[in-house]
């Protein structure tokens, strides 16, 4: 289970995330949606201990990042949108490194299985620097899966993947969740989010706009007649105007002045 309470983060004077609170239960898949710069990646990086958080508490399976960072990291796997691999290490050496760090005693079977399902077997002995964008993404996902995390954080995981890779990833995410893993996926691919996510969290300018189940979200915002009814996409676009106004008024209430113009996406798209 992932629990984030009152998380805030600022870069210089710019507030990236503002008092964010949410949780993901075991077996849940949470889709993190928002515009560019909404604070999605910052939230994930802070949760995985990469960047220091300004304020707030991160808890995974009862282990807090401030009190037991190693226990939290042992249970958390983060796959970045542009994975940073060790250029000198081969595909297999990456998995060896991961096994060593996470104390996996005999990883042979699991490694073979992962390499096979992600079609990396032919590249097993190739250096990471020679891999294509999609293959690097697949290797990062293999590394994450190998450690058998209870909290899986995926930042734009479909970037660069081929159709087969996308299908495999979607299936494996659902499988992991069924085994009790809490998953957070940040993505702009709303169809994919609708397919596999049980819950939705919408962020805008660092603030939480909506947090609830997929069904609840669609029920609440499926009023638009411009696109296909009852889809996450139509609900999302119809929610934008309303949520945008809510955020704008929230910011206005906090500071006394509006920090940025509220954009009416629907009218912009119509234009």
């Amino acid at each position: 289970m992932i629990d984030i309470r009152n998380f805030s983060k600022a870069y210089g004077t710019a507030l990236a995330v503002d008092d964010l609170t949410f949780s993901v239960q075991s077996g849940e898949i949470l889709g993190l949606i928002g515009r560019n710069g909404a604070g999605k990646t910052t939230t994930m990086r802070a949760l995985s201990g990469i960047i220091p958080s300004g304020a707030g508490e991160f808890i995974v399976d009862g282990f807090s990042l401030s009190d037991a960072p190693l226990e939290l990291k042992r249970r958390t796997a983060y796959v970045a949108d542009d994975p940073r691999l060790f250029s000198d290490l081969s595909v297999e050496q990456h998995l060896k490194f991961q096994s060593s760090v996470y104390g996996i005693k005999n990883p042979t079977d699991e490694v073979c299985k992962l390499l096979e399902i992600f079609e990396l077997e032919p590249k097993r002995h190739c250096a990471a620097s020679t891999l294509s964008r999609g293959m690097r993404q697949k290797l990062a996902i293999c590394c994450a899966y190998l450690q058998a995390p209870t909290a899986l954080l995926l930042d734009e995981p479909m970037t660069g993947l081929d159709p087969h890779g996308i299908r495999v990833l979607k299936n494996t995410i659902v499988d992991r969740a069924a085994q009790g893993c809490s998953v957070i996926i940040s993505s702009h691919l709303l169809a994919m989010v609708e397919d596999i996510c049980s819950h939705i969290l919408i962020l805008d300018r660092g603030k939480r706009c909506f947090w609830g189940s997929n069904v609840e979200f669609k029920e609440r915002y499926s009023q638009s007649e411009t696109t296909e009814p009852n889809s996450l996409e139509s609900a999302f676009f119809s929610s934008l105007t309303e949520l945008g106004n809510e955020v704008a008024s929230a910011i206005s209430d906090d500071t006394g002045s509006l920090r940025g113009p509220s954009v009416d996406i629907d009218s912009t798209i119509d234009q």
């Binding site: 490194f97 060593s100 760090v101 490694v111 032919p122 097993r124």
Partner: peptide
Amino acid sequence: DSTRFHAATKRARIRVPFR
């Protein structure tokens, strides 16, 4: 060819470095 070459070695036991 490279797939065939690696197919022979893929089941070899992976030795994990000391933690």
